[in-house]
Simulated assay, not measured.
Amino acid sequence: MSKYKILVTGACGVTSRSVVRSLNKSKIFAGQCDFIGTDVCYNEYGIYEGLYKKVYKVPYFNDPTYRTIMQQIIDENQIEYAILIPEPEVLYWSENPFDVKFLKIPPLFSKQVLSKKSLYDALYGKDYIPQYQIISRKDMLNSESNIKLPYPLWIRDFAEGTTSGKGSLMASCYEDVKAWAVINKGIPYFMLSEYLPGRNLACFTLFSKGKLLKYGVAQRINYLMDKVAVSGITGNTSKGKLLNDKKGLDVALDAILSIITKTSETMNGLVVTDLKEDIKGNPIITEINIRHVAFTSTFANAGLNFSEYQMMILTGRESEIPSELTMTFPNDNIMLRDVDGIPIYMEHYNTIQIGEYYG
């Protein structure tokens, strides 16, 4: 009989499945968990992959029936713990918790970081926030004089919970701006922001009652099916690596603590700060995610298992979490991922040259 009954929301998504795989690698929790998934089931593959004991199709969090249905699932399966992934759902649980154990992200903090605009507004004046402008679709079409930033620039949707480069384009001239406004008729307002040419970073930070317990920094290098997205960003990394880089952490921590001080809350839970380096190599914040991202399982493969630490906190074993804040990774490590396969982590990687082989 399984010892831990864990609800995983957004179960069919890449990130939720990454969390489950990470727990299946844990020396503490592997083979000890019943995973019960809930999802709107847009991605049906996740239903049948076999990671969960059950996957329930549920409505979106803002549907009037959501709470009743979720409570029935919790009761029927005797759920004790929950790991929450879709960001609007994370915020809902933070404000309207169910009677299970989960890492509760501070609700005011969550609201502040849920959209790029509110995040940038909260950190206005910091040197790690990009130049940006909010502009209506109408003004974008009316005149180039309404564009206040130099080219190239990013155009993006900035709605709450927006992911995977939705509504995003790197514009090199006003003709690009106008064309994007014409194509995206359903987006009334856009964010324009400076183009950042450097590395794309993700900084994981795990907090418990205001204390930073663990962190890890990863680099996204290439994306799956990047040619199908105009932005070149699909949200799913095909090639990346784990970094020994504290610059990203320093920026992420300053931003998180600045916001949490303004909201007068105590930081708790796992957040992932996305950063892009400017032309000088300075990390600039692009967003803060109040959830895991898909790099979770790669960190676990390397021995830094954020999902395991999260469950250790929830099960009263926080004191057993190793005191080191992070790990040191080989500089030549790599993460490789394909549409039909789970991520591969290699500690030592060399590009194969013509005439060479691997095997």
Results as ranks from 00 to 15, higher is better:
G359V: 12
A252W: 02
V55G: 02
N301L: 11
D226G: 13
K276I: 03
K276V: 02
K54A: 03
A294G: 07
K57H: 10
R21N: 07
E49Q: 13
K227T: 15
D99K: 14
N24P: 02
S145Q: 12
S16G: 08
K148V: 04
F204S: 07
Q71L: 08
I147E: 08
D34P: 04
V217D: 05
G303N: 14
V339Y: 11
S231F: 05
Y56P: 02
L257S: 08
Y357N: 14
H348C: 10
T326M: 07
E95Q: 15
L123G: 01
T162D: 01
A181G: 15
D338F: 07
I313V: 15
V293N: 12
G125C: 02
L141W: 07
D254Y: 01
V100T: 15
A229G: 13
G240N: 09
G31A: 06
Y349W: 12
R199T: 00
D250E: 11
T328N: 15
V339F: 10
S231Y: 07
V58T: 13
Y52P: 00
E89G: 09
Q72C: 02
K185R: 09
G10F: 03
E49V: 15
Y45L: 02
K247E: 08
L336T: 12
Y357T: 15
T326Y: 06
M225T: 11
M70N: 04
A300M: 11
G232D: 08
G269H: 03
N333V: 10
S26W: 05
K276F: 03
T163I: 08
L206N: 06
T315F: 08
K104C: 11
V8F: 06
E160F: 03
T328L: 13
Q71F: 01
L103I: 11
S264H: 14
Q131I: 10
I47R: 09
S264W: 01
V55C: 05
F158P: 02
V271W: 00
A179W: 06
A122G: 01
L23P: 08
M267S: 08
I155E: 03
T326F: 05
T261I: 00
K138M: 13
G355P: 10
N301D: 14
E80Y: 09
